[in-house]
Protein backbone atom coordinates (compact mmCIF):
# COMPACT_ATOMS: atom_id res chain seq x y z
CA UNK A 1 0.00 0.00 0.00
CA UNK A 2 2.81 2.40 0.94
CA UNK A 3 6.14 2.29 -0.76
CA UNK A 4 9.10 4.59 -0.21
CA UNK A 5 11.98 4.21 -2.67
CA UNK A 6 15.37 5.81 -1.97
CA UNK A 7 13.69 8.69 -0.21
CA UNK A 8 15.87 11.55 1.04
CA UNK A 9 14.66 14.78 2.52
CA UNK A 10 17.05 17.68 2.99
CA UNK A 11 15.57 20.91 4.32
CA UNK A 12 16.64 24.27 2.90
CA UNK A 13 18.71 24.89 6.05
CA UNK A 14 20.76 21.81 5.22
CA UNK A 15 19.24 19.48 7.82
CA UNK A 16 19.15 15.93 6.51
CA UNK A 17 15.88 14.60 7.90
CA UNK A 18 15.75 11.41 5.85
CA UNK A 19 18.59 9.65 4.03
CA UNK A 20 17.91 7.05 1.38
CA UNK A 21 14.93 5.40 3.07
CA UNK A 22 13.35 2.31 1.54
CA UNK A 23 10.11 1.08 3.08
CA UNK A 24 7.07 -1.02 2.27
CA UNK A 25 3.89 -1.08 4.33
CA UNK A 26 1.08 -3.44 3.41
CA UNK A 27 -2.64 -2.86 3.38
CA UNK A 28 -4.20 -3.24 6.84
CA UNK A 29 -0.85 -3.07 8.64
CA UNK A 30 -0.35 -1.38 11.99
CA UNK A 31 3.10 0.19 12.12
CA UNK A 32 4.89 2.06 14.90
CA UNK A 33 7.59 4.55 13.97
CA UNK A 34 10.01 4.94 16.87
CA UNK A 35 13.31 6.66 17.41
CA UNK A 36 14.87 9.69 19.10
CA UNK A 37 13.41 13.15 18.68
CA UNK A 38 14.55 14.75 15.45
CA UNK A 39 15.39 11.41 13.85
CA UNK A 40 12.99 12.01 10.98
CA UNK A 41 9.74 10.33 12.13
CA UNK A 42 7.59 13.42 11.67
CA UNK A 43 9.13 14.13 8.28
CA UNK A 44 8.29 10.62 7.17
CA UNK A 45 4.69 11.02 8.38
CA UNK A 46 4.37 14.35 6.53
CA UNK A 47 5.60 12.75 3.32
CA UNK A 48 2.71 10.27 3.53
CA UNK A 49 -0.03 12.89 3.32
CA UNK A 50 2.05 15.07 1.04
CA UNK A 51 2.46 17.93 3.42
CA UNK A 52 6.01 17.70 2.14
CA UNK A 53 7.72 16.20 -0.85
CA UNK A 54 11.05 14.35 -0.74
CA UNK A 55 14.20 15.96 -2.11
CA UNK A 56 15.01 12.69 -3.83
CA UNK A 57 13.25 9.37 -4.29
CA UNK A 58 9.66 8.30 -4.76
CA UNK A 59 6.67 7.98 -2.42
CA UNK A 60 3.80 5.79 -3.56
CA UNK A 61 0.46 5.18 -1.88
CA UNK A 62 -1.94 2.71 -3.50
CA UNK A 63 0.34 2.85 -6.54
CA UNK A 64 -0.17 6.59 -6.84
CA UNK A 65 3.07 8.54 -7.09
CA UNK A 66 2.94 11.41 -4.60
CA UNK A 67 6.03 13.12 -6.00
CA UNK A 68 4.72 13.42 -9.52
CA UNK A 69 1.22 14.24 -8.29
CA UNK A 70 -0.19 17.57 -9.46
CA UNK A 71 -1.11 20.16 -6.86
CA UNK A 72 -4.81 19.98 -7.67
CA UNK A 73 -4.85 16.21 -7.15
CA UNK A 74 -3.58 16.50 -3.57
CA UNK A 75 -7.02 17.21 -2.02
CA UNK A 76 -8.35 13.93 -3.45
CA UNK A 77 -5.39 12.02 -2.03
CA UNK A 78 -6.06 13.54 1.39
CA UNK A 79 -9.70 12.47 1.35
CA UNK A 80 -8.39 8.95 1.54
CA UNK A 81 -5.89 9.63 4.34
CA UNK A 82 -6.80 10.49 7.94
CA UNK A 83 -4.34 12.49 10.02
CA UNK A 84 -4.14 12.65 13.83
CA UNK A 85 -1.94 15.11 15.72
CA UNK A 86 -0.46 15.39 19.17
CA UNK A 87 -2.13 18.80 19.62
CA UNK A 88 -5.51 17.69 18.13
CA UNK A 89 -5.89 20.78 15.91
CA UNK A 90 -9.56 21.31 16.68
CA UNK A 91 -11.40 24.53 15.84
CA UNK A 92 -12.10 26.22 19.18
CA UNK A 93 -15.23 28.09 18.10
CA UNK A 94 -16.96 25.00 16.73
CA UNK A 95 -18.72 22.29 18.72
CA UNK A 96 -17.62 18.66 18.70
CA UNK A 97 -20.29 17.89 16.13
CA UNK A 98 -19.29 20.84 13.94
CA UNK A 99 -15.60 19.98 14.15
CA UNK A 100 -16.23 16.48 12.87
CA UNK A 101 -18.89 17.50 10.35
CA UNK A 102 -16.48 20.13 9.00
CA UNK A 103 -14.41 17.41 7.30
CA UNK A 104 -17.45 16.45 5.25
CA UNK A 105 -18.86 19.92 4.67
CA UNK A 106 -15.70 21.22 3.05
CA UNK A 107 -15.61 18.42 0.50
CA UNK A 108 -19.18 19.15 -0.51
CA UNK A 109 -21.12 16.28 1.12
CA UNK A 110 -24.87 16.99 1.30
CA UNK A 111 -26.26 18.15 4.61
CA UNK A 112 -28.38 15.12 5.46
CA UNK A 113 -25.49 12.76 4.85
CA UNK A 114 -23.17 14.98 6.91
CA UNK A 115 -25.53 14.71 9.87
CA UNK A 116 -25.97 10.94 9.79
CA UNK A 117 -22.32 10.14 9.18
CA UNK A 118 -21.13 12.55 11.87
CA UNK A 119 -23.54 10.97 14.40
CA UNK A 120 -22.35 7.48 13.49
CA UNK A 121 -18.68 8.42 13.77
CA UNK A 122 -19.14 10.16 17.14
CA UNK A 123 -20.92 7.02 18.31
CA UNK A 124 -17.93 4.96 17.19
CA UNK A 125 -15.41 7.05 19.16
CA UNK A 126 -17.74 7.19 22.19
CA UNK A 127 -18.56 10.90 22.11
CA UNK A 128 -22.23 10.81 21.12
CA UNK A 129 -23.22 12.52 24.36
CA UNK A 130 -20.76 15.40 23.91
CA UNK A 131 -21.67 16.56 20.44
CA UNK A 132 -22.76 20.04 21.55
CA UNK A 133 -19.69 20.66 23.74
CA UNK A 134 -16.85 22.93 22.70
CA UNK A 135 -13.25 21.64 22.64
CA UNK A 136 -12.24 23.63 25.75
CA UNK A 137 -14.97 21.87 27.72
CA UNK A 138 -13.45 18.46 26.98
CA UNK A 139 -10.60 16.48 28.55
CA UNK A 140 -7.46 15.82 26.52
CA UNK A 141 -8.55 12.25 25.76
CA UNK A 142 -11.96 13.43 24.57
CA UNK A 143 -10.37 16.07 22.37
CA UNK A 144 -8.17 13.41 20.79
CA UNK A 145 -11.28 11.31 20.14
CA UNK A 146 -12.76 14.23 18.25
CA UNK A 147 -9.57 14.45 16.22
CA UNK A 148 -9.75 10.69 15.50
CA UNK A 149 -13.42 10.99 14.54
CA UNK A 150 -12.58 13.77 12.10
CA UNK A 151 -9.73 11.70 10.65
CA UNK A 152 -11.80 8.56 10.03
CA UNK A 153 -15.14 10.03 8.99
CA UNK A 154 -14.24 9.68 5.31
CA UNK A 155 -13.38 6.00 5.80
CA UNK A 156 -9.77 6.53 4.76
CA UNK A 157 -7.66 3.57 3.71
CA UNK A 158 -4.73 5.03 5.65
CA UNK A 159 -4.57 6.69 9.04
CA UNK A 160 -1.35 8.45 10.03
CA UNK A 161 -0.76 9.66 13.56
CA UNK A 162 2.08 11.81 14.86
CA UNK A 163 2.43 11.08 18.58
CA UNK A 164 -1.33 10.88 19.17
CA UNK A 165 -0.85 10.00 22.86
CA UNK A 166 1.93 12.50 23.53
CA UNK A 167 -0.30 14.88 25.46
CA UNK A 168 -2.33 12.25 27.29
CA UNK A 169 -1.97 10.44 30.61
CA UNK A 170 -1.31 6.63 30.35
CA UNK A 171 -4.90 5.50 30.97
CA UNK A 172 -6.35 7.91 28.44
CA UNK A 173 -3.58 6.98 26.02
CA UNK A 174 -4.70 3.36 26.22
CA UNK A 175 -8.30 4.38 25.46
CA UNK A 176 -7.09 6.02 22.28
CA UNK A 177 -4.96 2.99 21.40
CA UNK A 178 -8.01 0.74 21.84
CA UNK A 179 -9.85 2.99 19.45
CA UNK A 180 -7.02 2.86 16.89
CA UNK A 181 -6.78 -0.91 17.35
CA UNK A 182 -10.46 -1.27 16.46
CA UNK A 183 -10.13 1.02 13.48
CA UNK A 184 -7.20 -1.06 12.26
CA UNK A 185 -9.32 -4.21 12.75
CA UNK A 186 -11.81 -2.81 10.25
CA UNK A 187 -9.05 -2.79 7.63
CA UNK A 188 -7.55 0.69 7.92
CA UNK A 189 -3.76 0.86 7.61
CA UNK A 190 -2.24 2.78 10.51
CA UNK A 191 1.19 4.41 10.70
CA UNK A 192 1.89 5.95 14.09
CA UNK A 193 4.98 7.82 15.24
CA UNK A 194 5.36 7.53 19.01
CA UNK A 195 7.58 7.71 22.07
CA UNK A 196 5.19 5.62 24.20
CA UNK A 197 7.42 2.68 25.12
CA UNK A 198 4.84 0.66 27.05
CA UNK A 199 2.28 0.93 24.28
CA UNK A 200 4.71 -0.22 21.61
CA UNK A 201 5.95 -3.10 23.75
CA UNK A 202 2.50 -4.30 24.68
CA UNK A 203 0.81 -4.00 21.27
CA UNK A 204 3.35 -6.30 19.55
CA UNK A 205 3.01 -4.69 16.12
CA UNK A 206 5.54 -3.97 13.41
CA UNK A 207 8.13 -1.47 14.65
CA UNK A 208 10.29 0.67 12.38
CA UNK A 209 13.07 2.56 14.16
CA UNK A 210 14.39 5.68 12.51
CA UNK A 211 17.79 7.06 13.56
CA UNK A 212 19.63 9.92 11.90
CA UNK A 213 17.21 9.80 8.99
CA UNK A 214 17.80 6.11 8.29
CA UNK A 215 15.84 2.94 8.99
CA UNK A 216 17.85 1.45 11.88
CA UNK A 217 15.54 -1.47 12.62
CA UNK A 218 12.39 -2.97 11.11
CA UNK A 219 10.78 -5.92 12.88
CA UNK A 220 7.40 -7.63 12.98
CA UNK A 221 5.90 -7.83 16.49
CA UNK A 222 8.73 -5.65 17.73
CA UNK A 223 9.41 -3.73 20.89
CA UNK A 224 10.24 -0.08 21.57
CA UNK A 225 13.93 -0.87 21.99
CA UNK A 226 15.05 2.35 23.65
CA UNK A 227 15.49 3.11 27.33
CA UNK A 228 13.73 6.28 28.23
Amino acid sequence: MIQLTNVSKIYPNGARALVDVNLKIGKGDFVFLVGPSGAGKSTLIRLLYREESPTRGQVQINSKNLVRMKEREVPYLRRNIGVIFQDFKLLPNKTVFENVAFALEVIGVVKREVRSRTRATLELVGLASKETSYPHELSGGEQQRVCVARAIINNPALLVADEPTGNLDPDTAWDIMDLLYNINKRGTTIVMATHAKSIVNKMQKRVIAIENGKVARDEEKGGYGYDT
Binding site: R72, P75, K89, F102, A103, V106
Partner: peptide, 10 residues
Protein backbone atom coordinates in the same frame (compact mmCIF):
# COMPACT_ATOMS: atom_id res chain seq x y z
CA UNK B 1 -5.02 24.16 7.57
CA UNK B 2 -7.68 21.64 8.55
CA UNK B 3 -9.60 22.17 5.33
CA UNK B 4 -6.48 21.32 3.37
CA UNK B 5 -5.81 18.37 5.64
CA UNK B 6 -9.22 16.77 5.12
CA UNK B 7 -9.04 17.31 1.37
CA UNK B 8 -11.00 20.45 0.59
CA UNK B 9 -10.08 21.55 -2.90
CA UNK B 10 -8.10 24.75 -3.33
Amino acid sequence: QIMKLVGASN
